[in-house]
Amino acid sequence: MRPFTKHTGIAAPLDLANVDTDMIIPKQFLKSIKRTGFGKNLFDELRYEDEGQPDQECTGRPLREDFVLNQERYQGSSILLARKNFGCGSSREHAPWALDDYGMRSVIAPSFADIFYNNCFKNGLLPIVLTEEEVDQLFKEVEANPGYELTIDLEAQKVIAPSGAEFSFEVDAFRKHCLLNGLDDIGLTLQESDAIKAYEEKRIQTAPWLFEARSL
């Protein structure tokens, strides 16, 4: 996994609550058996006028002019500013894959849906929870200032605005460690193989039916 340490980039404001994973990446694109290539279909229905198809060339498709990522000033943005309950709905990891593939490195919102939040960390994408008031303030600043950039310092757990104002955020110690170092958590868990085997040996005594062969 690509590490996340410190990042500075243009922030794009998506002013909509309860953005669900069907909005982030509609179902027709989930038919891919790869992890890459979803960026051109990120927010497909919000972004384009027509219905997108898998494997379709997207340059030349009619754009919805009012959608934030279609506006000139937000081109090249890598930090998404969002409203509450971002990423609600399905467990599709294609949602963080699409954000990542598009070039987003972080999403800042007052709250996230649990599964989406968790999936982000597996892909080097940092979801940041700030308070409603702080997010509101950032929305106002970004909309008033073209080229508005934020800096995110994961080690210090801070979002830094151009004015120098700092916003602290919480992040789980284990997730932070994995993200800072780009660690593969399967490899980490496999280091605990002995503990897993010891659990199984104990469990098979009290609940042997859980370990019966399932082939019928």
Partner: peptide, 18 residues
């Protein structure tokens, strides 16, 4: 509960979740 694809792989490989 539901999990993402990275965790599907994690469970296949380790029988556990963090």
């Amino acid at each position: 509960h539901g999990i993402g694809t990275s965790e599907v792989e994690h469970v296949l490989a380790t029988q556990c979740l963090v």
